[in-house]
Structure formats: C-alpha cells, structure tokens
Design a protein around this nucleic acid. Sequence first.
DNA 1: ATGAAAGCGCTAACAG
DNA 2: CTGTTAGCGCTTTCAT
Lengths: 339, 339
Amino acid sequence: MNTKRPRRPLTLRDVSEASGVSEMTVSRVLRNRGDVSAATREKVLTAARTLGYVPNKIAGGLASQRVNLVAVVIPSLSNMVFPDVLGGISAELDDTGLQPVVGVTNYSPSREDSVLYDMLSWRPSGVILAGLEHSRAARAMLDNAGLPVVEIMDVDGEPIDTAVGISQRRAGAEMAGEILAAGYRRIGFIGTHMPEDHRARKRLAGFEERLAQEGVQLAAREYYQGGSSLHKGRELTERILTREPGLDFLYFSNDMIGAGGLLWCLEKGYDIPGKLGLAGFNGVELLDGLPMRLTTTDARRIDIGRRAARIVAGKEPRPESGVIALAPTIMPGETIRKR
Amino acid sequence: MNTKRPRRPLTLRDVSEASGVSEMTVSRVLRNRGDVSAATREKVLTAARTLGYVPNKIAGGLASQRVNLVAVVIPSLSNMVFPDVLGGISAELDDTGLQPVVGVTNYSPSREDSVLYDMLSWRPSGVILAGLEHSRAARAMLDNAGLPVVEIMDVDGEPIDTAVGISQRRAGAEMAGEILAAGYRRIGFIGTHMPEDHRARKRLAGFEERLAQEGVQLAAREYYQGGSSLHKGRELTERILTREPGLDFLYFSNDMIGAGGLLWCLEKGYDIPGKLGLAGFNGVELLDGLPMRLTTTDARRIDIGRRAARIVAGKEPRPESGVIALAPTIMPGETIRKR
DNA sequence: ATGAAAGCGCTAACAG
DNA sequence: CTGTTAGCGCTTTCAT
C-alpha cells in the first residue's frame, strides 16, 4: 500500500546472519552447488524466504565471470517473423539456465553497432544476431568477444562464427520455379525499399535469376517505404496493376503485404489464381484466416531460432562448415494455379 | 574468418596501460564524467578504440550500485498489442540512458514470479509490468526492491506503486453504450477463455453492466483457448451464429478475432452493419486494410508505454494518486450502424 | 560438509 | 585536472 520502506537491498550476509550459516554455505545452498546437509539447507532456505532475499547477479557475475544471458539482436519486432524466431529461441533455452535478452536495430547498421556494444558490455554467454552483413566494427567486437556467435535467417555469405538459416536466394529461385511451372509469365514484384534488408534483396536476386533462366524478366516492380501492412499491400497492388494491367502474377516480399494485395484483388473481382496469381513470403499464421490461402514460402523461423539456441547453449556442436542451411519450403496455398 | 584468438577480455587496465593514463581517468573519459583535458581524452579514446575495448557493465554496476536497465514484464509478444507498448517505452527511454529488458510470462502467474525474480536479481532501475493482479510473492519482491514500479494497461485496482492504463471496465461499458445507442439488442460475445487475462475479464464485466442498465443481457457467448488468430475468429463466429442466428451484434475481445469474424461474415453475405454489427478491441493497425474498417476501441497502447517509461525515467513525477488513467477511445469504423 | 581469504573489474570518495 | 585507496556482493580456491 505504497508504504515503501527504503530498505537497503538484502545481501547474502543478511541471510547468513539470519540463518547462522556462513555466507559461503548460503551461497552453495542458493545455487544447489556442492554438498550441504539437509538441515543447514533448510535453515538457509527458510531464512532467505522469510527475508525475501533476491540474489545479486551483478555481483555473482563479476565473481564467477559467467553470465547466463544470450544476446539476441534483431531488426524489428513488428513484422510477425521475429516473434516466431524468439519463440524458438526461448523454447530451446528454457532448460539451460540461459536467458535471451533482445535488442532491436530497426534495420539500422549504426543502431546494430550500438546495440551490440551495449549487449556485449554485459558479457553474455553468446550472441544470436540476424543477418550476415555487419559493420567492420561489429565484426571486430564479436571477434574479440570470444564467445559463440550465431548469425541467423540467412546463409548466403561468410559467417563470423556460425550461421543458421535458409538460403534466401534459393527461396526466391524456388518460388520463381513454381510460378513459371504453373505457366505464369508476366510477373510483377512488390517489396520494401530497404537497402539494409539484405535478405529481401537476395531473395529477389535469386527470383530474377531463375526467371532469367527461362528467358523471363520481371514485368514491373513497386517499392514502398516503412513497415508492412495490409493497407500498404492494397495500395501497391492497385498501383502496379494500374500501371501494368497485363500482369499475371504478383510476388510480394512478405505475407502481410501479400495478404493486403489478395484482399484488394478479391474485392476487385480478379480471377485468382486463374488470371492472376499471388505469392508472399514467410508462412505466417495470419494467412490461415484469409478468404484464400496465400501461396508462400515457409522461412523456417521457429526452426532457425531453435537451432541457433541449441548451438549457443552447447546442446548441439557447431558444424565444421560453420553453416546450417535449412530448406525453405513452398506452401502452395490457393493463389497459384495447380500444375 | 573464424580465426578466433581466445583472447582474455580487455579491461580498463589494458586501456590504462596502452594510453599511459590512470584507470580512474580512463573510466572518466569513457563515461564522460568529470573534467578531463582534451589531450588525455584523446589519448584514452584512441587507445580504447584501437584495442577494441568494451566496458564491463557487470563490474561497473557492482561498483556504482546503479544499473541502467528497466525490467519490462508482459504476458505475450505475439498479440500485436505489446510490441506497440514496447515501442512507446523504447521511444521514451531512448534519451535517458536506460534500456528496457523484456520478460514474457505467457499469462502464467508462476512464470511472472520467476521472471520478476530473475529480473530483479539484475538490480534494474525500475520495473514496468502488465496488470494489477500479482501473486503475494511478486508484490513482496517489488515492495522490497525499493525501486519505481509501474503497472500498465489497467487502472481498475490498487497499484503497488503507480499504474498507467485505461479503465478496462469503462472501455467495455463505453462500447456497450455505443452498441445500444446504435439500436442493436441481441448481442453476442466472443472472447478467450483465460482466467488470467484480467483485463479482458474486466472489460466484459463493464460491458455487461452497461447492457444491464438498459435491461439487455448478453444473448450468447463463445470462448476459445490459446492464441488469437483470424482463423479462430472465423470458427467462433460461425459457431455462435449457428447457435444463435438471431444475434444482431458481436463483441470480440480483440481485433484479430474480430477481423476473422468480419471476413467470415462478409463471405457469407451478412448485411453489415445493417443486420449484424461487429466490434473488436485494441485499435491495431491491421484493421486498416480489412475490406471494412472494424469498429474498435483504441487501448492507447503507445501512450501507455510512453507515460510508464517517463515515470520510471523520472521525466514525469509519479502522480499523487498513483494512477494515470488514459481515456479509451472508440474508433467507430464501418461495422456499426451510424446513429 | 563447512569456512576463510582473496579477488572479479570497476567506480565513489577523497587527496593532491 | 589527475591519481590513490577502498570497497561493491558474490564465488573461487584452498583449508579443515
């Protein structure tokens, strides 16, 4: 009831005095380390509980030189993909005593540097960070830190230590293959204009390469700024189809704008997938409830989180090659013609 | 290139030796504390940079007894509401030197206890946590910690220290008022079956009270387990309307299931808002792109995050009453009749 | 099974 | 403006 006693935070010594047991033994009990008689154990636990003692990990970390934290550095929380990755990480870390701590960069390299710096200053046990593209400074920090570093989401590049992800180029290429096989030829692309979203960039590159193999070129492209939303998807779809009415397929760089595009096309009465096909990317749960299931690629977000966490936790050895490439998986949905 | 020198982590002493300046002065430079001559300053900075020194906050925190962390404890990351709250918190903390650290409880009181315990063991400068309902143990921990505690989202109850949020009862009541004023009378409710989601519970209570004032009772209700999704919204909407075809309004406990319900109703050709009205809760961006704008209540998520952060950061004084009640705001949308 | 001593890397407080 | 001295609260290591 707001009667905050400005009490000095309790220390091990307080518990020691209250229980008549040495600080050292109290420490052992509280960490379940070493042999302690049941009787002493009980005394200590009781004292700790009645006092309401909460150990000081700052002091503990300094003394033991070990901190049970895993730094997780990601570009964004808002696009439904990283929460899934985090879910995988937490699930796998749950029984290891390690705790994820999340930092968000908003796709800014300089923010990435400063977030990394801040997190490393806590001397975590490992780092998981999105992407393979980092500043020289960031690479140096991570090299010097001498701890496990797992770069996630992408495997097209040279990892600092270990990479767990999908080949974004391959994901793009495979979707292009699907689309071509289904007979579409006048293909448009809608994506975010973010030079720092290297994964989207590589995906598109793989996509276009595969098209080129069949002598097909992108017939139109439309870029947007800022976050993805259904609304943006609608706008851009309208714009691209107005500009290029002859398009027979739209490839979206993520499911959210793909879903917006789908809703717009359905309202306008487009024949989907007959005259116009659509595909997104990620495989988010959102798609389950749309009027039509959007064709997409499962980016293996949860698996990526899990494997990364397993490596940091030492549950699984770092692979010789330094790379764990998971297979992106096309989820056909209903917005592409059956072949 | 994976040539990881198992180098001993650098210390202030290394920088001191490399620059020929005392540890203390190096520390001053690195923290911009006290007066240091430009020359010394330069020497230190150069040495620190070339060595690649990253300060050890564990040691710093222990010595200074101050840690620039704010613990943020929330039930979930996946429902589009807490990312917004976090956005508000980060924005406001950005220029304070404080950093949010997030813990997730999955609506489990025992997880909340253990997450709190873990976070408090890092001796953060403040705590922001969702809701006013906490275990006796949690309240004791927070009372003892002697730091600012801000409970967010809800103001219907007794705060431990300070509360920032909306009155959930009032939010429910106001939506009920809106619905009644628009002439709807056979009202159904669809919500999650989560005894631990106190905010949803209070909202429904306020809603029903207001209905009762006009002599109206809920005509049907449907509960679901697990997370919210468009898909669940569809399922439950179908179920409730099959069971009670005479309903003329559906009140959903959040926008995601409301959106699912809306999509389903539109497909089935319901006359919305003429014969059937719909409303959700939260005011999430998602709604912008739906075929029809869902009526909802803006839960003031970002503002709540900002105000909470301001109080923890000391930018704004804790109010005498301990309570900051923001006004939930109805966003009329298109799924309720104009009156 | 328990305790004593030393110190983790940094900063507060004081001295010059 | 710069340096010295003592810890911060815990765990490591070594005795007993």
